[in-house]
Amino acid sequence: MPLRGEDHTGARIAHHRKRAGLTQRALADKIPYSYSLLTQVESGHKPASPDLVATVARTLAIDVTALTGQPYVTELQQDRLAGLIRPIREALDLYDLGADPDIDPRPTLQLVAAAENLCQQVRATKLHDAALDLPGLIAEITTAAHRAPSSELWAALSSTFRTAHDLSVKLGFYDLSTVALDRMDWAAARAADPLLGAVRQYMRALVYFREGEYTIGRRLVSSGHGLLSQATPSREREVVAGQLHLGACIIAARARDRSAVETHLAEARTHAQRVGEATEVHWLSFGPTNVAAHAVSANIELREYGEALKEASGVVIPRDWAVSRAAHFYVDQARAQMEAGRSEAALKSIKQARRLAPQQTRYHSGARETIRGLVHVARRTPDTLDHLAAWVGL
Score class of each variant (00 low, 15 high):
V169P: 02
A322W: 13
L167K: 08
G287Q: 09
L60W: 03
G217R: 00
G136S: 05
T270P: 09
L171E: 05
L374Y: 13
R269S: 15
G212Q: 04
R162G: 03
G136I: 04
T55N: 00
V41Q: 00
P107M: 05
L347W: 07
G276K: 12
L244V: 10
S297N: 11
R237Y: 13
L38G: 00
Q333G: 14
R379V: 08
L394R: 07
E304A: 04
A334G: 07
H264S: 09
E42G: 01
P2G: 03
A293I: 15
T215M: 04
A298K: 03
L3E: 11
G44F: 08
A357R: 06
C249R: 15
T142G: 13
D386C: 05
R379I: 12
E344Q: 14
V392D: 07
T263K: 08
D100S: 12
Q359E: 05
Y72A: 09
D182K: 11
L137I: 06
A353P: 14
S229Y: 09
A378V: 06
L76Y: 07
A308Y: 04
D320R: 13
E6Y: 12
S223H: 01
V296Q: 06
G393K: 01
M1F: 04
P107A: 06
P233E: 03
Q273W: 12
V275A: 06
L347F: 13
A188G: 00
P107D: 03
A180D: 04
A11P: 00
R210S: 11
V296Y: 07
R237M: 13
A114P: 02
W186Y: 10
E213Q: 08
P194S: 07
Y330P: 14
H16G: 01
E152P: 05
L227W: 13
T68G: 06
I85D: 02
R80S: 14
A308G: 05
S365R: 12
L38I: 02
R86I: 03
T59P: 00
N117V: 06
K18R: 07
G366I: 14
D79L: 14
E267F: 15
D63W: 03
A378R: 03
S177T: 12
Y208R: 08
L284S: 07
A312T: 13
R380D: 15
P107Q: 05
R80H: 14
R4E: 11
A357D: 05
A268S: 14
V73Y: 10
V377K: 06
V323Q: 10
I88Q: 04
A124C: 08
Q120C: 02
A82W: 09
A292T: 15
A293K: 08
G314V: 09
Q77F: 07
G44T: 02
L265E: 14
A124Y: 07
P71F: 06
S151R: 06
Y33D: 03
P71W: 02
A252Y: 08
W154K: 00
A145H: 01
Y208M: 06
R303H: 15
Y202C: 11
P135R: 15
G306D: 13
E277P: 05
E307W: 15
D96H: 12
Q337A: 10
R218M: 10
A189N: 01
T55E: 02
V377Q: 09
D185C: 09
A164T: 04
R355D: 04
Q359V: 12
V375D: 03
T59E: 00
D193C: 09
P149K: 11
R362V: 02
A131S: 08
H225T: 06
L111A: 06
E152Q: 10
A293W: 02
A334N: 02
H15C: 08
P318K: 05
E277M: 01
